[in-house]
Design a protein around this nucleic acid. Structure first.
Lengths: 226, 226
DNA sequence: CCAAAAGTGTTTGCTCTACACCCATGG
DNA sequence: CCATGGGTGTAGAGCAAACACTTTTGG
C-alpha cells in the first residue's frame, strides 16, 4: 500500500502571527534575503524536521522570530499547489498564532538575521509565494473564530477593560458595536470576572477584568434549519 | 532559507468518504492486506505524486475506490504526529468527501483489489493508524458544516422530498426536529424550489424539490458578542 | 376502510436592537 | 471647570419554539 521509493514533496510550515499593536491587528513578516522573491516580505516558516511534529515546527519558527515559546496556535490549511514555490514541489502546512498585546517580543530578526517587521493586516506589502492568500484566509478564520468563541482573549493582556475587548472586536470585525449591548452581553456570558484593579489614564478610571479560564465559551450557532 | 538536502517526511492523503446508505450516514473503508495493521480497516489513501496537487491526489484515491470522478471535497486537517505510522515519518493530509445517496458506486474494491466496505459512522470497526481520530473529526466538521451551510444537499439526490432533507439532518445531527418548523424554515430560506414531480410509495405522494444552485446558503452565526 | 406518510398555522416568550445621558477622574 | 473615556436601562420588533389535526394515496 505504501512505498518509500517515491520522490517526496518538501514539507514546510508557515505561521501567520497576529498581535494587537498600535491599536491595530498586525501580522509579523520577515524580509527575504535571497531569491526567489528576494527583498519581498514573507511569512515566518521553514522545513519540518524529521523528529518534530507539525505543531512543534510551527512553534519553533515562531520562537525564532519572536522569542516566545508558547501562544495560541491553530492549524489553518495545507497548501499544495504545484507551482507555489518556483524551486520545486513544496507543500506547506500553514498555522496561525495569536499573541497577547503586552507580550514582550524580541524586536529584531531571529536567528537567521533576517529583517522582521509588523504590518497592519489591512495594509500588507507585496508578499512572496502564495503568502498573501494564506494571510487572507487566516484573517477570515480569525474573524470567524471571534464570532463564536472567546479567541479574543488570546490577543489581550491578562487584565483588560471592557472597552479594550470591544475595541478588539471592532478592529478585527471591522465594524462599530453598540457599547451598552456589548457590555450587557459579555457580562451575561459569564466568561469574564472583575478584578479588584482599576486602570487610570485619561477620563474616569476603568474596571479591569480577567478571563475566567473555566469558562465555556462556545456559542451555539444559529442553524440554517432548526 | 530553504534547503533541499534535508530528509523529508513522506506525504500522503486520506479521504473520509461519507454517503447516505440504508438510511444511515456511512463511511467507506478499505481492508488492509499487509502489515502494519494487516486485516484492519483504514481510510482510502496513499502517496501524493510529484505532479498532482493535494486535492487531485484525494480525488484520485476516491476514484480508485468508488469510480466517481467528482464529489464535494474539502480539506480537513493535516496529521503529523511522529509515531502515527510505525514504518516511518508519514504526514497525511486528510480530506472528506460527500457523495449523493443515489450515486452509482463501483461495488467492489478499487484498483488495488483491496476489500472495500461501507460502515455506519456510528458503528465503526477497529481502525488502523490514527484513522479513528480522523473520522471522528470529520464527523464533527460535517455536523458543524450542516448547521450553517447547505452542505446537506451534497448528500442528497438531485430531487428529494422535504422529509428526506429532514431525515438527513436528524441522522447527522442525531436529534429529532419539529416537522412544521423545519419545513417553514427551509422553504423561507429560498434555497430549494419545487419540481413538477411527485414521489409515490407508501402513504400520500410527496412533492419533489431541487436545490437552487444560485442559492446563497450561508447563515450568519450568532455571535458570542454583538 | 385502514395504514402510512404528507402537509399545514397560530400563539407565546425571548432575544436582539436601537437609543441618550450622567459619572469619575486628571489636568 | 472642562475634557475624556467609563458606565448604565428600557421599549418595540422580529424570531424561535411548542404544539395536533387533516389530506392523499395504496393495499
Amino acid at each position: 500500500m505504501y512505498s518509500y521509493e517515491y520522490p517526496r514533496p518538501a514539507l514546510t510550515v508557515d505561521v501567520v502571527i497576529f498581535s494587537l499593536r498600535e491599536s491595530r491587528l498586525q501580522v509579523l513578516l520577515v524580509q527575504r534575503a535571497e531569491p526567489p522573491f528576494a527583498g519581498m516580505w514573507a511569512l515566518p516558516g521553514g522545513f519540518v524536521n524529521m523528529d518534530e511534529t507539525l505543531e512543534e515546527a510551527a512553534l519553533r519558527e515562531m520562537e525564532e522570530e519572536t522569542g516566545l515559546k508558547q501562544a495560541y496556535l491553530e492549524q489553518l490549511y495545507t497548501y499544495g499547489e504545484i507551482g507555489r514555490d518556483p524551486r520545486g514541489r513544496v507543500v506547506s502546512v500553514a498555522y496561525y498564532a495569536l499573541i497577547p498585546a503586552d507580550a514582550r517580543i524580541r524586536s529584531e530578526g531571529g536567528s537567521d538575521a533576517r529583517q522582521a517587521g509588523w504590518f497592519s493586516a489591512q495594509a500588507l506589502p507585496a508578499l512572496a509565494f502564495d503568502h498573501a492568500e494564506i494571510i487572507a484566509y487566516a484573517l477570515r478564520r480569525l474573524r470567524y473564530k471571534l464570532e463564536y468563541t472567546a479567541a479574543c482573549f488570546e490577543l489581550l493582556p491578562d487584565e483588560f477593560t471592557l472597552s479594550q475587548i470591544q475595541h478588539t472586536y471592532e478592529m478585527i470585525l471591522g465594524e462599530k458595536l453598540d457599547k451598552r449591548n456589548f457590555r450587557r452581553r459579555i457580562q451575561q456570558a459569564g466568561i469574564i470576572e472583575p478584578t479588584p484593579h482599576l486602570r487610570g489614564g485619561e477620563g474616569r478610571p476603568a474596571r479591569l477584568y480577567r478571563y475566567r479560564s473555566d469558562a465555556v465559551a462556545e456559542v451555539k450557532a444559529r442553524r440554517l434549519f432548526p
